[in-house]
Computed example of a mutant assay.
Amino acid sequence: MKILLYLEAENFLANSGIGRAMIHQQHALDLMGVDWTKDPSEDYDILHLNTYGFTSWKMLHDAKKAGKKVIFHGHSTKEDFLNSFTGSNLVAPFFKMYLMHFYKRADLVITPTEYSASLIRNYGIKCPILPITNGINLAKYKKDPRKEQAFREHFHIKEGQKVVVTAALYFKRKGIDDFIKVAEQMPDVRFIWFGYQNLWTIPGWVRRIVKKNHPSNVEFPGYIKGDVFEGGMTASDAFFFPSREETEGIVVLEALASHQKVLVRDIPVYKGWLDENSASLATDVDGFVQKLRDILDEKVDKTQAGYKVAESRTIELAAQELVKAYQQTLEL
């Protein structure tokens, strides 16, 4: 069995959740000893598509013509396309129709959670739709004093200074507006937003937030990976993710794997796997501020229960489910 993994516009998407999910797929197949390629000129048994561009459509057409099986990874829905790029809300209904053209041709749709699977089912897609977590590499986010020191030195963090981090693109969907409002009410705390988005692809008001319209205790250092980011996930005092819509949220898994205190917006995607036992949840700015204060004042610590959630969604478990899905698809 050989899998053709394909991510159109891979360089553009490398720093996004989809890009990271693609890396997880490669890691998963390596763990299971399954042969894979990213080269469409090589022979393969299953085409596993991660994006929905014109080249992806041509590959889908060619694969079907050759009698190959096709799996789509349902990273995208109309719901998580809203409140993202400039004009996204205007074109979201058309984006949904466009997605359906792809999903309807698939032999299987894989999507990270039961919530995102239910959204795609409600689009009227009849092929099998299987929830499989993106997975998380627990070892990568293990506490490491060397990485933590790299984080502290990079940001010149002083002894005793409280630091809250997040990681996301500059989207309203990701809650960038509420992140700023919470920071305004907590001027004694540093807020660091890891991530980057081309500023000309987002609405002007978001662009102005990133460039200048934010309080002095908020920092936008751009996309940072490796020791500084991983050290920040364990060395900071909280991970605050106010996203309004996700298909899973890989960064949430990364925070849980880091034994970090996690605060998220209470949204449907977390139903069934993340709740008040393993993370703090709130729905508005006042709630976020109160929950963050409780975390920073050490009144709340759910890190052990949170880590157990990460353990239930490891890359090793995801790999087993992924290979099983491939084998079942070949037998269809």
Rank of each mutant, 00 (worst) to 15 (best):
D30Q: 07
L130D: 01
W57C: 00
A150S: 13
I110C: 15
Y170Q: 10
V323I: 13
L292S: 13
H259Q: 15
N83E: 11
M59W: 09
G53P: 06
R190P: 04
L5T: 08
W273N: 05
I180Q: 08
A235S: 15
V182D: 01
W273C: 02
N15R: 15
D35K: 11
K140H: 10
K162Q: 15
E114I: 04
G135N: 05
Y123R: 02
K126S: 15
L31I: 14
K211H: 06
V323Q: 13
M32F: 08
T37P: 03
I3F: 07
F220G: 03
N137P: 00
V218T: 05
E254N: 04
A168Y: 00
G226L: 11
S116G: 04
L138W: 05
P131T: 03
L274W: 05
A63N: 00
F94A: 12
H156P: 00
I176P: 11
Y307R: 11
R173E: 10
V34Y: 06
E8L: 01
E311Q: 15
V323Y: 12
N137H: 12
K324P: 01
S116L: 09
V189D: 01
N134P: 00
E10P: 06
N213P: 05
A92N: 04
K65E: 14
T303A: 05
K162M: 07
K158D: 11
P221L: 02
G17E: 01
H101G: 08
Y52I: 06
Y103F: 15
Y270G: 04
K96H: 14
F220W: 08
N83T: 02
D30G: 03
L130I: 03
G272R: 11
R146W: 09
D294S: 13
V289S: 09
D107I: 09
N137K: 10
P268A: 10
K302D: 04
F220H: 03
N198K: 14
F95D: 00
G195I: 04
L7D: 00
F288V: 06
L29E: 09
Q320V: 12
K162R: 15
E159Q: 14
I136H: 02
G204W: 13
D30P: 01
L263W: 09
L82S: 07
K302H: 12
S76E: 15
K158H: 15
V323T: 10
D45I: 06
H214Y: 12
V289N: 06
D177Q: 12
A106W: 01
V269E: 08
T303F: 07
Q25G: 00
V163F: 14
R20N: 12
G222W: 10
I176D: 08
V289I: 05
Y223C: 07
T51A: 15
T283I: 12
Y196E: 07
Y307L: 14
K104H: 11
G195Y: 04
K181R: 14
F191H: 03
A255C: 07
S280F: 02
E321I: 03
E298I: 04
M186F: 13
K126A: 15
Q290F: 12
E148G: 09
V70N: 01
S88C: 08
K212P: 04
I157H: 02
V300A: 06
K140F: 09
